[in-house]
Design a protein around this nucleic acid. Structure first.
Lengths: 339, 339
DNA sequence: TTCGCTAATGCAAGCGCTTACATCTTGCGA
DNA sequence: TCGCAAGATGTAAGCGCTTGCATTAGCGAA
């Protein structure tokens, strides 16, 4: 890779000092129009791009924020990021994306990597991580926004929703539809506060409505894992009449399992999801699920982050609302119980 | 944000010179074990992370490569990137991801942004972009790998597959199944060589097999756009007996349109996709589609990029094979024609 | 014509890091 | 005991950029 032209190259060719070139690039008003044009011509001619490292060194900030998401394999996080990125880009801030593969160790490594890159702020998913990680973040005093979770009493600024409550509402709806033998295919709860909160929410709601405790099976974030988990649940006796899923991807797996077993949804088995990704509307029947405001979350995170970066003051967390989208995968409970 | 500890802070506290600290970090073998431990203790204590800009300035490379994908909204690109990232990370290289939203202007901006960040290489999707962009890349002599396309005669190193041929094979299969009234819901072809190649491939194959030219409707990359396009095609007279889709997302939209119109797949209408994303197996019936080796593509891109970064020599393009996955959405053509 | 003020530009000091080279220790053989 | 090589560490010169301050040019007013 050829060594890039530098400010000095431009300056020499334009017959000005490096200071002037720098000013043309950053504060063009301070430069005479004629000089400015001459410099800009040389910049174009040389295809000059300022060296990021040099710049970062001099101005001591990078206009960059980093986000660490569990995975890119599914659109669920990526989508919020798109909104975040758009919003940030409008303010001249670049977004760096890294993935942790749901692994706390990898997440910590990525935090270090991004911080080493001098990001001016950080977006992290969820609240569950080690105390030492939080201590590290606190010591660096880097602006951090937690996404996808919102819990009263959390010390860090978060933009999200109450996973526990949303899951509880869905469970309540399932019970209200007449189901008592309810099972759950949950996401992996270890190191994932969102998945855990959803399980707790479902358990709490079922208990509160006098339904038996659900059988809960955890599954990795994939259709295949959901299918396997659902097969287990559906082939046991007595089989559940409704399966609440920790997310839509798992629900898709449940659909396949049901299809394989010749069970019709919602006649033989009801299914609910969580997240409301595109997939939900494609499933047949369309999936009844919890709608999560991805985009608004991303946008809000951008605002919060920018405010946090400007003034180190504490910024209030933002709680967004979820909403159940009833679509057809949740039917009435079995008649023997209902009648 | 508190100003970070620097090498000098560490050096002072450890009672050594900055050079020694630097050596502890980069070439620990050159430092006496005792000194090394002392320095490391201080590093930990201070939570020191080297300043990326300073480092980049001094060593004149960043161990970073950038990738620009059209969108993160869908997993199709993200997935290949995950493989790319994993592979790169194993070699100590960080991946920066940016999106262009299918817009050449934005892509060009992102290229500049990434280059300004000093990326040592670039991954771009597809081959279609302006000559000036290519000229710029050539002048900078930055290693570039084009993903998702592979065409004989392309001057740039690419890792991908032949979209034209893959689409043609699918069209041939559709005709062989007995269909003659074939339509296509294609991706937007403007500025997208992959979408265009797929359309051309279908057209060529139909012509070669003596089938009438297909009606082609373009649709943006979303389920909803696919649904709209399919509704148009299905409600005209005569309606097609098979719809070939430019990608699986559009195929999902076709499923919804068919469902809304009370058409059964594949009895009333056959549908095929392209890409083989998870979605394809969830659809009911599972989608017959072209399987694309996402992961191998990402991995291969990583290898090529690393080789290109080491030695500026020309590296051969890599052609990967696609494969049709027959699953059930493609049925026999209408009997009136067959018999 | 000269002075004073503003606008335009240059000078040079750093920003945090690496690394060639210089310097200082050690340990060992003679 | 001394000399010397190898090992350990320090010194200082950049890497490309920004920016406070100094300098110069240009202009109107006195």
């Amino acid at each position: 890779m050829k060594s890039q032209p530098t400010l000095e190259d431009v300056a020499r060719l334009a017959g000005v000092s490096t200071a002037t070139v720098s000013r043309v690039l950053n504060t063009p008003d301070l430069v005479r129009a004629e000089t400015r044009d001459r410099v800009r011509a040389v910049v174009d001619q040389l295809g000059y791009t300022p060296h990021f490292g040099g710049r970062a060194l001099a101005i001591r900030r990078t206009n960059t924020v980093g986000a660490i998401i569990p995975t890119m394999e599914n659109a669920i996080f990526a989508r919020g990021l798109q909104a975040l990125q758009t919003r940030l880009a409008a303010r001249g801030v670049t977004l760096l994306v890294a993935t942790s593969d749901f692994d706390p160790i990898q997440e910590e490594e990525q935090i270090h990597a991004l911080l080493a890159r001098g990001v001016d702020g950080l977006v992290l998913i969820g609240e569950a991580r080690g105390a030492d990680t939080y201590a590290f973040l606190a010591r660096r005093e880097v602006p951090v926004v937690l996404l996808w979770s919102h819990r009263e009493g959390c010390l860090w600024t978060s933009v999200g929703f109450d996973n526990h409550r949303a899951a509880a509402e869905m469970a309540a709806l399932v019970v209200a539809s007449g189901h008592r033998r309810v099972a759950m295919v949950a996401g992996v709860t270890a190191g994932n506060d969102r998945a855990a909160a959803r399980v707790d929410g479902v358990r709490a709601a079922l208990a509160a409505h006098g339904a038996p405790a659900p059988r809960v099976v955890e599954a990795a974030y994939s259709i295949e894992a959901g299918r396997t988990a659902a097969t287990t649940l559906l082939t046991q006796d007595p089989a559940p009449s409704a399966i609440i899923c920790g997310n839509d991807v798992l629900a898709a797996g449940v659909y396949i399992a049901a299809r394989d077993l010749g069970l019709r949804i919602p006649d033989d088995i009801s299914v609910t999801g969580f997240d409301d990704i595109d997939l939900a509307t494609v499933l047949d029947p369309p999936l009844t699920t919890v709608h999560v405001p991805h985009r608004r979350m991303g946008q809000a995170a951008a605002e919060v982050l920018l405010r946090l970066a400007d003034a180190p003051a504490h910024v209030e967390s933002i709680a967004l609302e979820t909403e159940i989208r009833e679509r057809g995968s949740l039917g009435p409970g079995p008649s023997e119980t209902a009648q």
